[in-house]
Design a protein around this nucleic acid. Structure first.
Lengths: 340, 340
DNA sequence: ATGAAAGCGCTAACAG
DNA sequence: CTGTTAGCGCTTTCAT
C-alpha cells in the first residue's frame, strides 16, 4: 500500500551488497570511509528508514510496551498515559493501551492479547475486580518484565510505582479533623485494591492520632469504583444515614459521582457534610463548592513506571532486585472542606 | 526474553513440515482431516499464538494504526480514543497514540515517527498551529489511508468524521438568544481550524436568523486552544470589555479555562454574563453554576473514524470515493445560561 | 573492506 | 494431501 525504501534498494543503486550497506548504516568500523559516506548520503537523500518490523523479527523484540488500565477516559489514567507516552516515545518504544473497564475477565483477555502481540513488557494497573494474580505471577517468574502502577499487586515482587496513598489519605483526613469535623465517613473502592487498603490505613491513622475511634459503619465500599451509578447511590445513601459531618472519598471517579448524589439527598456541601477526596480533575476548582482534593502526580507516575519497565526490558542480565517508588500527593484545600 | 512457541516447534513435535502445520492452522482445505485435528489440538494445548511480527513482515502490513491528537488528557480526545480502541481492538489492529500539544512541528514529527513504524493508516485531528498540509496531501496522493476527525483538513479529499459543529453552535447560540440574551460574545480557538470556522458560522447564522447584527469585536480567538493560560486571560479580558451579556465558547478546554477568569474579573455567571460552551466534561453539571454545554459524540466519532480507516486499509482496490460523516451534538441546558 | 548466505516466523508457489 | 523452497527486511557470521 505504502512502500518505502529498503536496504536492498540502496545496495542496488550503489552497486554494493546489502551487508555493506547495513554496516555503513550501523556505523560499523570495518568499512571504507568513502563507501560509508556514500551510503549515508544516499540514505539521507531518499529518506531511508529501517523497517522496524524486520528488526523486531530479527532480534525478537517488538519495541512496544503494553498498558493495562481500567479506563482511558479518567483524569488520573489519561494523565498517567501522557507520562507513559512521553518516556516511551523518547526511548523508541510504542505503547499499546488496553482498557479493562474494571472487569477481571477483560483484564485477562487484554494481557493475553498484548502477549500475543509480543510486547516487550507490561505496565499494569489492576481492575477493581481482579483477585487472581496467577497470570502475572507466571509471567514474572518466567522473567517477563512487568511494572505495576497505582493499583499494584502486593504479592508479586516486581517494580511498582504509586502515589503515597497512605500519606495522602492521612493528610486529607487530618485536614478534616483539624478543620473541626468529628464524624468522618470514608467512601472508597473495592477492598482488594492496594489503593483502597492504603488509603483506608491513612484514614484510620489520622483518626487514631486525634483520638477519634474508628467506626466500621462509616466506611462504604463501591466495588465497581464508581463506574456503576446504582452502587454509588446505595453507598452514599447508606453512609449518610450514619450522619457523618464530613466524608473523605478515596477515588477519582467516586469523588465526582458522589457529589450529585449527596445533593440529591438534599444535603449541602460543606454545611451539612464536608467533602475531601482523591481526584486528578483539572476543574475541581470550578465545582459548587470548589473541591478540596488530594491530587496524585499522575504524569510522573506514568513516567517513572515506564522508565523502570524499559530499564528492565533493556537490562543485559536478569533483574532480581525490585523497588517500589512512592511519589508524594498534593492536598489542595478549598471550600468543600470548610467549616460552616 | 520471553519465548513462545513457533510453527516450527509444532512441526517438529508432530513430525510434519511447517507448511502443513501452517495450512492446518489456517483452515486450508487441502489437508487431511486427522492431520488438521492433530495440529489444532497440539497448538491449543501449548497455547500457540502466531507471531504477528512475522506476519507483518510477510504481508507488509503492521496491523497498527497511528493516531495524531493534540492531547490525551482532554475529555473529548480521551473519549474519542476510547472509541478508536474499541473498534481497532475488535478488528485486530493496535493503536499508536501520539500527541502534538498543539504544535505543528511536533505534529510533523509524529507523522514521520508513525510512518517509520509502518502504521497501516493514520487517524488525525490537526493541531491548532497547523497550516501546512503538504505532508498529508503527499501521503494521501500516494494512496496512504488517512482519516481526519474533529479538526479536519478541508482541502484534502479523504474520509472525515466530525460532530455537526455548525448545528451545535447554532443551537447553543439560538438557545442563548431565546433565553433573552442579546449581546452574545464568542470565544473560540485558532481561526484556521475547521471546528473554529464551522462553529463561528453556526454562531453567525443564529444571530442572523434572529436579526442580531454580527459584531467582529465580540469574537475572540485563542490560538493555542486554551493550553496557554495567558492567552485565554487576554481574550476573556478583551471580550468582557465589550460587555456581552452571554458568551458562547467554542471548545472544550476554553470552556473550562474561561470560567475562573470571568469570576476573577468579578463577574457572576449567569447574572452578569451567561455561558454556554462546547465541552465533553462529565462533570459540567457540578460546576458553579452548572454549565450549559454542547456535547460531542466523541466515542462514536472515534469509532466511525476507525471503521472508515480500517475499511480503506483493507480495501482490495484503491479507494477514490470519500465521505464525510457528521454526527449530531447534544445541547444540555443548565443554569449557566439562564436569565437572572 | 566487502560479499555471500543463513536465519528470525510465517505463508504461498511449486513440486510431488 | 504434504513436503520443499523462496522470500518479506535486516543483521551477522563466515568467507574472501
Amino acid at each position: 500500500m505504502f512502500q518505502s525504501y529498503t536496504i536492498k534498494d540502496i545496495a542496488k543503486a550503489l552497486g554494493l551488497s546489502t551487508s555493506t550497506v547495513s554496516r555503513a548504516l550501523n556505523g560499523s568500523y570495518e568499512i571504507g570511509a568513502e563507501t560509508k559516506k556514500l551510503v549515508l548520503e544516499y540514505a539521507e537523500k531518499i529518506n531511508y528508514r529501517p523497517n522496524p518490523i524486520a528488526l523486531s523479527l530479527k532480534d525478537q523484540r517488538s519495541h512496544s510496551i503494553g498498558v493495562v488500565v481500567p479506563e482511558v477516559a479518567n483524569n488520573f489514567f489519561s494523565q498517567a498515559i501522557n507520562g507513559i507516552e512521553s518516556i516511551a516515545y523518547n526511548r523508541g518504544y510504542h505503547v499499546i493501551i488496553t482498557q479493562t473497564h474494571e472487569s477481571a475477565a477483560r483484564e485477562a483477555a487484554n494481557v493475553q492479547h498484548l502477549l500475543s502481540r509480543h510486547v516487550d513488557g507490561l505496565l499494569v494497573s489492576l481492575s477493581s475486580e481482579t483477585t487472581d494474580l496467577d497470570q502475572y505471577k507466571y509471567l514474572h517468574d518466567k522473567g517477563f518484565p512487568i511494572v505495576f502502577f497505582d493499583r499494584i499487586a502486593n504479592s508479586i515482587d516486581t517494580h511498582k510505582v504509586t502515589a503515597d496513598n497512605y500519606k495522602g489519605a492521612f493528610e486529607a483526613t487530618e485536614h478534616l479533623i483539624k478543620t473541626g469535623f468529628e464524624k468522618i465517613g470514608h467512601l472508597t473502592s473495592a477492598s482488594q485494591l492496594s489503593i483502597t487498603r492504603e488509603r483506608l490505613e491513612g484514614y484510620k491513622a489520622a483518626l487514631e492520632k486525634h483520638g477519634i475511634p474508628f467506626q466500621a459503619e462509616l466506611v462504604k465500599h463501591c466495588n465497581h469504583g464508581g463506574t456503576v451509578q446504582q452502587e454509588v447511590e446505595t453507598a452514599v445513601t447508606q453512609l449518610m444515614q450514619e450522619k457523618p459531618d464530613a466524608i473523605f472519598v478515596a477515588s477519582d471517579r467516586l469523588t465526582t459521582t458522589c457529589i450529585p448524589m449527596i445533593k440529591k439527598l438534599g444535603l449541602r456541601i460543606p454545611d451539612d457534610v464536608a467533602i475531601a477526596g482523591f481526584t486528578n480533575s483539572d476543574v475541581a476548582e470550578l465545582f459548587a463548592p470548589p473541591l478540596t482534593v488530594v491530587r496524585q502526580p499522575a504524569f510522573q507516575i506514568g513516567q517513572v513506571a515506564t522508565e523502570m519497565l524499559i530499564n528492565v526490558i533493556e537490562s543485559k542480565r536478569p533483574v532480581t532486585e525490585f523497588t517500589t517508588e512512592t511519589l508524594d500527593t498534593i492536598l489542595i484545600d478549598r471550600e468543600s472542606s470548610h467549616k460552616a
